[in-house]
């Protein structure tokens, strides 16, 4: 068993909560210095619990916990403030962020850069910034941070040229169409081949999603990459959103 330690005043976000026993919750959090952790919040479902209104997703919190096992004991949670609740479409995007975090990050694997990217994404959603851009930026940061080695500005044929045409091969990176003996003819290259312009790749590397083509192509690429790393797990938030749009 790992050494029992007490963590204090740790900046953290609630990703998800599950009812546990009669009056408690298991809270999955993502924290600045300790990464993702599962905390037992004892009595948090009692009507008068002070934790009840605090343990909400999409709110910046400071948390104290202790314990050395897989599930720690939450001691205190307080609101850091400064951010309104997410509503509407922003809230739906927030669920998507949280599901990615739950499925792609491991427990007790600290990622301070990813913490910063997550925090920036949630507060951008709260300010109702362009949602698609917020998601793309976060997806790129997530894949980078998890060490999936996203190759954007250079492939095996060298630096990406803005006027070049590429195909993105997962776990290999961008491959120039001509280098592959493939000719770029619109329509001849299916979407599964992940066709991209060099400019899109360079925009993504520079964190600039302002061009329409970059938005469309990066969305398709990132979705394919994320599906690949999810290894067949279905994103519930994506399914629910799709069903809602069909109503």
């Amino acid at each position: 068993m790992a050494l029992k330690q007490r963590i204090e005043q740790q900046p953290a976000w609630v990703l998800h909560t599950l009812p546990w026993r009669e009056t408690s919750l298991i809270v999955e959090v993502f924290s600045l210095e300790h990464g993702r952790a599962a905390l037992a919040a004892k009595g948090a479902r009692r009507p008068m619990s002070a934790l009840r209104g605090v343990l909400m997703a999409f709110q910046p919190l400071l948390m104290d916990w202790s314990g050395g096992g897989e599930v720690k004991t939450l001691i205190r949670a307080e609101w850091r403030g400064g951010q309104p609740l997410l509503t509407g479409r922003a809230l739906m995007c927030g669920y998507y962020l949280n599901e990615l975090m739950l499925r792609l990050t491991a427990r007790e694997d600290p990622h301070p850069q990813l913490f910063a990217a997550y925090e920036a994404a949630v507060s951008a959603l709260a300010r109702n910034e362009h949602f698609e851009l917020v998601l793309r930026r976060f997806e790129v940061a997530l894949l980078h941070e998890l060490g999936y080695g996203l190759a954007l500005d250079a492939g095996e044929d060298g630096a990406v040229r803005p006027d070049g045409r590429y195909r993105y091969i997962i776990e290999r990176g961008p491959v120039a169409m001509d280098a592959d003996g493939l000719e770029w003819v619109d329509g001849a290259c299916g979407e599964d081949d992940l066709p991209l312009s060099g400019q899109t790749l360079l925009d993504m590397a520079a964190d600039d999603f302002s061009r329409a083509e970059t938005q469309i192509q990066s969305k398709r690429l990132l979705r394919a990459l994320i599906n690949h790393y999810l290894g067949g797990q279905v994103l519930q938030s994506r399914r629910v959103l799709k069903e809602l749009q069909e109503l």
């Binding site: 998800h16 669920y95 519930q236 938030s237 399914r239 629910v240 069903e243 809602l244």
Partner: peptide, 15 residues
């Protein structure tokens, strides 16, 4: 609705 628990419009019978 609880997207992370898989409760969507179908499960809630929103129709």
């Amino acid at each position: 609705l609880s997207p992370l628990d898989g409760v969507g419009p179908r499960e809630l019978k929103l129709d």
